[in-house]
Simulated assay, not measured.
Amino acid sequence: MSERANGPRQLPLVLPHEAARGREDFLHGASNEAAFRFIDSWPNWAAPVAILAGPVGVGKTHLVNVWHEASGCAVIAASDLTGDKVSELVEAGAVAVEDAHEGLDENALFHLLNAARERGALVLVTARTWPRSWGLKLPDLASRLRAATPIEMAEPDDDLLRRVLVKLFADRQVFVDPAVIEFLAVRMERSIAAAQVLVDALDRAALSVGRRITRPLAAEVLEAMEGESRQG
């Protein structure tokens, strides 16, 4: 009989938490070191426009926040970018445009890049994919983006994945034994997005049964998530 059966299940009270996204909180690894070094080299960037691309959850927004803290850059979602906002954005001297893969006003982005060049401002565009997959219709914009510095972020290696799990639990003020971290790291889907989902599921499961996160509980949650994945 599992430990879960020893007591009544409770509705979990999951308190709001905020991920730590300062420079000192960014976890380095082979998959993201080049991206971190580029952002950290501000204001001495090798090029005035850069594209930061990588899968969901790998830390693109974290790096934007690091750059914002250092440079005071303006930050805007690509879907919110319109031509009338360009002048105000470039006044900051640096602009981050996030999630360009979700769709954007091509004329507005082209206008932003032109205004930034005239103003001497730096521009960082983030996305999950590279511009060639965005379905761009404006040739001049596509050409300008091809000339931008490409910076890729990949899924974490084994060591980084373990440290990501520890950080995600620490963000929730939850201590998990290193043996449990190791148990999870060698069995879970190898992505930061999966780590975020797993940590949330484990936190909720532990709260619902009123006990700490142990290997038996971790095994139950992993099995349940695998079952849901097969059914889905």
Rank of each mutant, 00 (worst) to 15 (best):
L198R: 02
V180I: 12
A142K: 11
R132A: 08
E182V: 07
T129V: 04
L138N: 10
R211A: 05
E220I: 12
F175M: 08
A218R: 12
A115S: 15
A170Q: 12
A205V: 00
L165T: 05
F169K: 05
I181E: 10
V123H: 07
P156S: 09
A205G: 02
P156D: 10
V221R: 04
V221H: 02
P178A: 04
E189C: 00
L136S: 08
E155Q: 12
D177V: 07
L217D: 10
R204L: 08
L168V: 05
L202W: 12
P178G: 10
V174G: 06
E220H: 08
P131W: 07
L160K: 11
D158C: 00
S208M: 09
M188Y: 01
E152P: 04
I181F: 02
R190A: 09
F175H: 11
T126Q: 05
R212H: 10
G210V: 07
D177M: 11
F183A: 03
R204K: 15
L217M: 15
D200E: 14
P131Q: 04
F183P: 02
A179R: 14
F175Y: 04
D171W: 04
V123C: 01
A194M: 01
R119I: 03
L202Q: 12
M153Q: 11
L145W: 01
L124Q: 04
A154M: 09
A154L: 15
D203Q: 12
S133E: 13
I213V: 14
P131A: 04
K137P: 00
L198W: 06
V209T: 14
P216D: 14
S191N: 07
Q196S: 10
P150C: 13
P156A: 02
A201V: 04
V199P: 06
T149N: 15
D140T: 07
A205E: 15
S191M: 01
D157R: 10
R211V: 01
I192H: 03
L122R: 13
A218C: 11
D177W: 03
L184R: 12
F175S: 14
V197H: 12
I192M: 09
D157H: 09
E118C: 07
A193D: 15
A195V: 01
D159N: 07
E189R: 13
L141G: 10
T149D: 02
S133W: 08
R128I: 04
V176L: 12
L165K: 08
D158T: 06
L124R: 00
L202K: 07
A121L: 09
R132P: 00
D171M: 03
L202H: 09
A219G: 09
E220K: 07
A121Q: 08
L184G: 07
A127F: 08
L168G: 01
D171V: 08
R215M: 14
